[in-house]
Simulated scan of single mutants.
Amino acid sequence: MTTTETTTETAAAPGRAAAPAARPLPGAWSLGLRRGALEIRQFFRQREQVIFTFAFPIVFLVLFASIFRDDVEGSGVTASQLYAAAMIAAGVMSTSFQSLGTSIAVERDEKVLRRLRGTPMPPASYFLGKLWLVLVTGVAETALLLVVGAAFFDLDLPGGAGKWLTFAWVFALGITACALLGIAISSVARSGRGATSVVILPFLVLQFVSGVYISVATVPDWMLNLGALFPLKWMCQGFRGVFLPERAAVLEQAGSWEYGRIALVLGAWCVGGLVLCLLTFRWKSRDDG
């Protein structure tokens, strides 16, 4: 009897269980969902980080909108309404750009990224997990700001589906662009301890030149032109277009909401941010070579 015949008879012999088939590994999308659930649980277990992330934009909204409540000449809206609309954009950038820029730098410094890179998990799953975290915290932050703005600072929630659709695509493009920029800037800091200053300084400057803390009607044109190079200015403008009456568009630099340009700039930053991530992201710190 040949070896082939013996093998065939053995496999067909009654009472012998066949070897179990190897279970296929989960795909990148499935692992990304699981990674996202883990990231969200870890985030909400850190009480201090949760309080800072959600309270920071709300505290500044309350401060500025309470101090400056006068009507803005020629617009028919109050300064507090302007702050409430723009602070939503700042909250989105805080939960995406600032959060990812610092947390990823810390994970790289603590060798977490290096260990993850050595596992079978596809690299895309790690970034999908981060994006799920950003989406959940961004939606929660935005909801809180809308409640505070509508309850205390006369922010009018739109009644038509068109305005909410505009809000949805501005939010989606804005949070995607800011998340990608946060991933990219995480590679700039040499250590986790230095990441906070590297991320917060440009974020703070952008808030002043993008019309978050100061009305665009009073910001010098050269500052507005500088802010126009980055996503925050266009998110602020888009959200003002959603939550403020049409007559308030006279306060904008171009005298209109410019939805087409908002979509173009935010979409370009989504593409540009992805390219920056691919070119600059590192799994190891510089000290590790």
Rank of each mutant, 00 (worst) to 15 (best):
A228E: 09
A172F: 13
L201K: 02
I40M: 01
S125Q: 06
E110L: 13
L146N: 04
M87F: 14
W164N: 03
F167S: 01
L206G: 03
T8M: 07
L38D: 02
A55G: 09
T119W: 12
E246K: 07
E73A: 15
E107W: 15
L266P: 00
L266F: 03
R282M: 11
S66I: 06
L100P: 00
A28L: 04
G238E: 00
R41C: 02
V216N: 05
P24I: 11
C270V: 15
G138I: 10
V59S: 08
T78I: 10
E5Y: 08
R45K: 11
L113I: 04
F64Q: 03
K233Q: 06
A268N: 02
G273D: 04
C236K: 03
M93K: 12
R193P: 00
F43P: 00
G118W: 06
R115L: 11
C236S: 07
A172G: 04
L133P: 00
P245E: 06
S256Q: 08
V170F: 04
P120S: 10
A18I: 08
L279G: 03
G74Q: 09
G101C: 13
G267M: 11
F54I: 06
P202S: 09
Y126W: 14
V198N: 06
W169V: 08
F52G: 08
G194I: 02
L251R: 09
A177H: 00
P122C: 07
T6V: 14
T8L: 13
M223C: 10
N225P: 02
R45Q: 08
V212S: 02
G160V: 05
R286D: 08
L31Q: 09
A228F: 08
A89N: 03
M87Y: 14
S215M: 07
G182P: 01
M93P: 01
S191W: 04
A19T: 12
F43T: 08
E9K: 14
L100C: 05
L146F: 11
P220F: 13
P24S: 11
L157S: 07
P122R: 13
F152E: 03
S103L: 12
A89K: 04
S210V: 04
F64V: 07
I262W: 08
V271Q: 05
E48R: 12
G91E: 07
M87Q: 06
V147W: 14
A161S: 14
L33Q: 05
D221V: 15
S96H: 02
T10N: 04
A143Q: 04
V112I: 12
T176D: 00
F152P: 01
A90V: 03
V212I: 13
D70L: 09
V250W: 12
A124H: 02
L135F: 15
L25A: 14
D154E: 09
L165Y: 09
T10A: 15
W283M: 09
G101L: 11
V216L: 05
S80E: 10
N225Q: 11
L232I: 10
Q46P: 00
T102R: 12
F127T: 00
A86I: 08
L25S: 10
V147R: 06
M223D: 02
F64A: 04
R286L: 13
L131D: 00
S285F: 02
D70V: 13
E39A: 14
F152R: 10
K111Y: 11
W222H: 10
A18K: 13
W29A: 12
L61C: 06
L135Y: 01
G118I: 11
G174V: 05
D70Q: 13
E48L: 14
F203Q: 07
